[in-house]
């Protein structure tokens, strides 16, 4: 204790230390190694050697541009869908949930009690060609008679949306929950219709939740490969599928590593553009 008393200034750093050490060991070191690997050349037969092979990056972009674009596109659509679906739900729970709040939140998290994989596999059954959903859509003539859902882009986007929904709903709920109801009342008393009060007061105050939710959904969704593998066809594969196959099937580590960095860069660019559009203060709440 004596030591800490004498060096009070150190306390915050000591508190930070476990986190920093953890991230350093398990994030920065592997990241550095991945960067090293992304500049290697060679093959599994003859071994890999470091050779400043910037060509790996060039090849990743040239050969897989379509996959990168598709990943950002699917993740983007899924994020918007998740936002549209979650906002009213989170709003309702926050303002009208009353004593059921906790139970309702539990329902949102409930799918997470089942493993990711089984959740996605369940969608295979839900969307199967002879399943209820497809049959109903056929009856309604929404899908042509040969149309199907499983192994299409729609199925992949739907799967991603579903799998990442809680990441969107929970931050939204937290930011909506914190809004002081008196502000909305005041707006309604003084000048606004309910709709106007929502647009002028509730929505702006919930923006930090929107931003947090979209980031938490978009970033992992862009690197996802399970949904595309299980619910998509070969023409719907995302960059995650290519990285997975390069790492584990072709054992082409340099290509896989460089693709991972390109994906990271693409996500950072997308997030920065988004931050500029909505204003950086929303990022930090």
């Amino acid at each position: 204790m004596g030591f800490l008393h004498r060096h009070r200034g150190l306390t915050p750093y000591l508190l930070l230390a476990p986190g920093v050490v953890w991230l350093g060991l398990f994030f920065l070191v592997p990241l550095g190694f991945l960067a090293y690997q992304s500049l290697e050349s060679g093959s599994i037969d003859f071994g890999y050697a470091f050779s400043w092979s910037w060509g790996n990056y060039w090849n990743a972009i040239r050969n897989y541009r379509g996959h990168f674009e598709r990943s950002l596109e699917y993740a983007g659509i899924a994020t918007v869908l998740a936002l549209v679906v979650s906002y009213p739900v989170a709003y309702w729970i926050a303002f009208r949930g009353g004593r059921w709040k906790n139970l309702l939140l539990l329902f949102i998290v409930a799918p997470f009690f089942v493993t990711y994989l089984i959740r996605t596999l369940a969608w295979q059954t839900i969307l199967a060609d002879h399943g209820l959903v497809v049959r109903t859509l056929h009856h309604l003539h929404v899908l042509g008679s040969t149309g199907r859902l499983l192994n299409t882009a729609t199925a992949v986007v739907a799967g991603i949306t579903y799998n990442f929904l809680p990441f969107m709903a929970l931050p939204l709920y937290v930011s909506l929950e914190q809004i002081d109801g008196r502000l909305i009342e005041a707006a309604e008393d003084l000048y606004a219709s309910r709709w106007k009060a929502f647009l002028r007061v509730t929505l702006p105050l919930s923006l930090p939740g929107v931003v947090a939710g979209t980031l938490l959904t978009f970033i992992p969704a862009a690197g996802d490969f399970i949904n595309a593998q299980l619910l998509g066809s070969p023409t719907n594969h995302m960059i995650g599928n290519v990285i997975q196959s390069k790492f584990l099937e072709l054992t082409d580590y340099p290509a896989a590593a460089s693709m991972s960095f390109v994906l990271m860069a693409a996500i950072i660019v997308a997030v920065l553009a988004y931050a500029r559009a909505v204003g950086t203060e929303q990022l930090t709440g």
Binding site: F33, Y116, L117, F225, Q244, F247, L248
Partner: peptide, 24 residues
């Protein structure tokens, strides 16, 4: 199929552990 996919996913998960890092 379920079991196989589980296994496949398990393998997929292995990708995240960075075989190279383990090698190092």
């Amino acid at each position: 199929t379920r079991r196989q996919l589980l296994e496949r996913a398990a393998l997929g998960g292995a990708a995240l552990t960075l075989p190279g890092f383990l090698a190092a």
